[in-house]
């Protein structure tokens, strides 16, 4: 798994894949999708797919892929090496969503929430497999949200494919377990080798589990906070844990859409717009100036 | 710290020590209130200060952040607009001929006397005053007729520049940052004159603006 492309610029998202085995391009395949790193406030979220010919599912099971959450990091690494070695019938692809990308997507003016982001990434990976010539026939997807709606969405997107969306699919379908392992291994490696472009000084390298309810992680967030710039790009700014710390400890920043935020508005009576002003009104500035937002300077 | 765009001449080295560029408050002729102006070195040139001001702006300047996100511009200004303020005041108070250094006196804005040092003041003041010379000394009095003639020239020059720079002057409201492919041929000569009058009115009092409109 060559992660150099992502490691060189971990601000942007990255797609990487194995070569599609010849068998996958000639035989109907089952494809599993899973994610890693949805919950943490630190690091990327990784979506992974793994596929093999339907007829070879038994061979995949023989590699003893299991629910990746029950395995140790070292065990997952070993399993991934076995999957990667089975190049004749197993293929994989990963989409690494950088924490910066997650943060900016979720905080855009036209909000792009995590669910939509997740679904689109999964759809993108299925399409990538199809574009690579893989004869995808069946798709198995793990989900935390409502399975029926997501299944319907995928079926609409890929009407020729048999789609199964189920919670805990990683423990039901070997191809999803395999995808889970690919995603988890990728995330573990990326997080371990994370290069802080911000050149942090005097910051503890131990940030705990990376989960928002971990006191060690919260302490680390507070420690590495810059009052003007906030957190390093390793942090998902859009997570409420991060936002609360920013609100309490960082400098306030106002954007021109802050006015649309109900918490920023103070209710103003309509009548106040018609109230007589106490101060005498002076001639308004010529439109040449106000159209260009130019004002006379009275003080520096 | 402030970020300011200024003509190069502002930063010319002064001929005399301690006479570098000077920011100072003077009476804005349109509002009658204090506004900030800039004299170049040796007070030869006068500049008005404008700020480009959007509400949600700040600066990074070097390794510092600054809340005030205004971008300032210093642009050359004809000092006669400010001299007019005192000529009109003198005319209202007693209507007598006076030397300029007695006209340009203001406790609230003591720097107004520096207008005398501007190169163009002595060269062009005859456009707005009646002059008398007694015993080798010159005396001045505001002339409305001459001033209106001078202001009309300003308006005419402004019209030319507006046309040359394709400034939108017609009645339709549109942000100045919107750039349409269409040439603004809808504007009439009247539109240009009205607009130019309005611009010049930013530099004169309301009475004079009304008189100029009539003229």
């Amino acid at each position: 798994m060559d992660l150099r492309a992502f490691e060189e610029d971990n601000a942007v998202s990255c797609l990487l894949d194995s070569a599609a085995p010849a068998a996958c391009r000639t035989q109907p395949c089952c494809l599993g999708i899973d994610e890693a790193g949805r919950g943490p406030v630190l690091g990327p979220m990784v979506y992974g797919i793994c596929y093999c010919p339907v007829a070879r599912q038994g061979d995949l099971e023989a590699i003893k892929v299991a629910d990746s959450k029950t395995l140790t990091e070292a065990q997952r690494e070993q399993l991934f090496e076995k999957l990667d070695a089975a190049k004749d019938f197993v293929g994989w692809a990963l989409h690494i969503l950088s924490p910066n990308f997650i943060s900016t997507s979720m905080q855009r003016r036209a909000k792009y929430n995590l669910n939509a982001l997740s679904h689109d990434t999964a759809i993108g990976l299925i399409q990538h497999a199809l574009d690579s010539g893989v004869q995808v026939a069946e798709v198995f997807v793990d989900t935390v949200g409502p399975a029926e709606k997501y299944q319907e969405k995928l079926k609409q997107q890929f009407p020729g494919l048999e789609v199964t969306v189920k919670p805990k699919a990683d423990s039901l379908f070997p191809v999803v377990s395999a995808a889970s392992i690919c995603a988890k291994v990728a995330r573990d490696r990326v997080v371990k080798n994370w290069k802080f472009v911000e050149a942090l000084e005097n910051v503890d390298s131990d940030y705990g589990s990376g989960y928002p309810n971990d006191p060690k992680t919260k302490e680390w967030l507070t420690q590495c906070l810059d009052p003007v710039f906030g957190f390093p790009q390793f942090v998902r700014f859009s997570w409420s844990t991060a936002q609360v710390i920013l609100e309490n400890k960082a400098v306030a920043v106002r954007w021109d859409d802050t006015e649309d935020d109900p918490s920023q508005k103070s209710a103003q009576s309509l009548l106040s717009y018609f109230a007589r002003k106490d101060t005498p009104t002076r001639r308004p500035a010529h439109r040449f100036f106000y159209e260009r937002k130019l004002e006379t300077v009275t003080s520096l | 710290q402030w970020v300011m765009v200024v003509p190069e001449s502002v930063t010319d080295l002064p001929k005399k020590p301690n006479s570098g560029p000077l920011f100072t408050r003077l009476c804005n002729p349109s509002t009658g209130q204090a506004a900030l102006y800039l004299f170049s070195s040796d007070s030869r040139q006068l500049f008005e200060l404008k700020a480009f001001h959007e509400e949600y702006r700040s600066w990074f300047i070097g390794q510092a952040v600054q809340q005030d996100g205004r971008l300032f511009f210093a642009t050359p200004m004809d000092p006669l607009f400010l001299v007019l303020v005192y000529l009109i005041k003198s005319e209202k108070e007693h209507g007598k001929f006076q030397p300029l250094d007695q006209i340009l006196v203001d406790e609230e804005f003591p720097s107004c006397s520096m207008l005398l040092q501007c190169t163009s003041t002595s060269r062009t003041i005859h456009h707005i005053v009646e002059e008398k010379e007694i015993g080798g000394k010159k005396f001045y009095k505001f002339s409305e007729e001459k001033t209106l003639k001078w202001l009309k020239k300003k308006v005419d020059q402004t019209v030319k520049v507006l046309k040359c720079h394709d400034v939108r002057v017609d009645a339709r409201v549109q942000t100045a940052t919107f750039i349409s492919g269409k040439q603004f041929t809808d504007a009439t000569e009247d539109d240009y004159i009205r607009y130019a009058h309005g611009l010049i009115s930013e530099y004169i009092n309301e009475d004079l603006s009304t008189a100029l409109a009539k003229y």
């Binding site: 710039f229 400098v251 920043v253 106002r254 021109d256 | 070097g62 390794q63």
Partner: peptide, 22 residues
């Protein structure tokens, strides 16, 4: 020039968090 109002005057680690780009 930033497209937001930072309600603070003071030091900022600009070179740490910003790299010039064309």
């Amino acid at each position: 020039s930033l497209p937001c109002r930072v309600l603070h005057d003071g030091d900022a680690a600009v070179c740490k968090y910003f790299s010039p780009a064309i």
